[in-house]
Structure formats: C-alpha cells, structure tokens
Amino acid sequence: MTNNVEQEIISIIADVSGFDKDEITPEKNIVQDLEVDSIKAIEITVAIEKKFKVSIRDEDVPKIVSVKQAVELVERLLSKVH
C-alpha cells in the first residue's frame, strides 16, 4: 500500500516537475530540491486529488514540504475513506 501510494505520488511529481522518478526520493524538499513553484504545487495537488479521489484540506497544502509528507497525508486520507 505505502509503496503504491509513494510510487504514484512520485510519478505525479515527476510529470509536473520534470525531474526523473529516480531523482525523487521521499526526503526531497518539493520546493527547494524539485523546484516546484506555487503553480506547480496546485498542479500536483489537483493530480493527487484526482488520482486517489481524496480531498486535501486547503490549509494542509502549504504544510507539505517533503515528498514523504505528501505520501503520509494521502495515506491518512485514504485510511479515513476505507
């Protein structure tokens, strides 16, 4: 489960940021290491919400700093759904 969520999120971040999947490791800082600006952050959020059919709270979006935090947040949301 974790692995799948992580792989999907990495794949979304790769599409949006243009970084290769193997460059995107869980501890990477999305803004600093992966050069994601505010527009791309929206793009990633929209893609994650569509992919996992979850709704991320607006105030939680700016709190996502690392890839790992994004994965943990989605896992939390998914566990609430199921």
Partner: peptide
C-alpha cells in the same frame, strides 16, 4: 497567502 492560494484550485 498559501492556503487561500491552494483553495483556488
């Protein structure tokens, strides 16, 4: 502000 910005999606 970041949270209102993300709300606009």
């Amino acid at each position: 502000d970041p949270s209102s910005f993300s709300r606009m999606r």
